[in-house]
Design a protein around this nucleic acid. Structure first.
Lengths: 207, 207
DNA sequence: GGTACTTGCAACATCAATGATGCAACTCCT
DNA sequence: AGGAGTTGCATCATTGATGTTGCAAGTACC
């Protein structure tokens, strides 16, 4: 669960264990550096990865290639996490918890790549995110049907707030233990469902 | 109220009406272009402003100068809006509405400058934002004392969520009428206070 | 141990963005 | 109308990032 399979292939050929390690170092460094400063140079990324700049270029022909690889890698993780957790059978609240936990696990530490992915020019990647978005909407609608969410709630707005909460939590942590993730999940969902106010009733505003 | 005073001075001298207009065009264009792509070039900004690139450089010696000016301008607007609306006398809910409305008015259309400002290297600008942040915390604490917010709410988290909601709304609109702003304000505060769930009780999670 | 691959280093070529300047035409302001 | 100031254009210098390549030393894998 902690380890993953080949993050990418430079060519189609099998990679030396050595090389694969370097590539991962570069991707991790890229994530770290670029999340701090999206305009960071290849030089800075290479330095953070502890390799020479030329080595980075040997693995990723251009800066764009590197970012694409990063994006794709993160997107695969993301989609896998969501697909694994999302189920139309389980109660919405349970699914919401599971999905949130899994997404947090991926997104914490890969914030830059994930935000890039959301608006990617690559149709495949954009498609993955659109699919996830649709899944989320469906989950929320189901939550509404089962009475978890109020009937008058605007699903699109609720979804955006949910995303925003995850984003907020993600940007405050570079790493997190399982216990942290669980606590953050609970925090997000509690906030999403109840907000911060005391008044239980929701006095239909105007209209 | 709709028109403002001199956004900045290139030197200390009085500016020709002409020049002032050009400067505003450039700042507006910079905001528009940079919010779409933070790495946009001076060329692109100049083009968006409908002036030659050299003109931009005549007004703002370096790219950094331009962004600083943009940041400072937005920060002034922001601080003014908050100071104007924030009051320790009025009920927290009223203040929350007023502040939100005023902030939205400024922030919609100046999103790039505002986000830059929040983490500015310039101590004066960072200070302004820190002050606003403190004001916000104080307001929330007062809201907690008066029973508007639940006693167990983590102020810092609530504040971050509030910021996130504003950010979310801001990024979805480039412009907004007064009616829009009012509606969005209501939406934000309703979400912040009540969330999206039906359950009125909040079953103390663990602990 | 030997081969094939990878890495760091140094050097190089390229290119785009930045920033400056002189000049002619135009606009503001009095 | 006239002077001061501003703009666009063409041009140039500079700089920093990008990307490539050859070579010597080191490492993985059989």
């Amino acid at each position: 669960m902690t380890e993953q399979r080949t993050p990418l292939r430079t060519g189609g050929k099998p990679l030396r264990a050595d090389t694969e390690r370097t590539i991962r170092l570069i991707l991790q460094a890229a994530e770290r550096v670029l999340s701090a400063d999206p305009t960071a140079t290849m030089e800075q990324i290479a330095e953070a990865a502890g390799v020479a700049r030329t080595t980075v270029h040997r693995r990723f022909a251009t800066r764009e290639t590197l970012i694409d690889a990063l994006t794709q890698w993160a997107t695969e993780q993301f989609a896998a996490a969501v697909d694994n957790a999302a189920s139309d059978a389980a109660p919405p609240l349970v699914v919401l918890y599971r999905v949130t936990t899994d997404v947090l696990r991926v997104k914490i530490g890969w914030g830059f790549a994930m935000t890039r992915a959301a608006t990617s020019a690559h149709p495949e990647i954009a498609q993955v995110h659109a699919d996830v978005l649709a899944k989320c909407d469906r989950l929320f609608r189901r939550a509404q049907d089962t009475g978890l969410l109020r009937p008058d709630v605007d699903i699109a707005w609720a979804r955006r707030c949910y995303y925003a909460l995850i984003h907020e939590v993600t940007h405050a942590h570079d790493e997190a233990t399982d216990a942290d993730v669980d606590a953050l999940t609970a925090l997000i969902i509690d906030t999403l469902l109840h907000g911060f106010g005391t008044t239980p009733a929701h006095p239909a505003t105007g209209s």
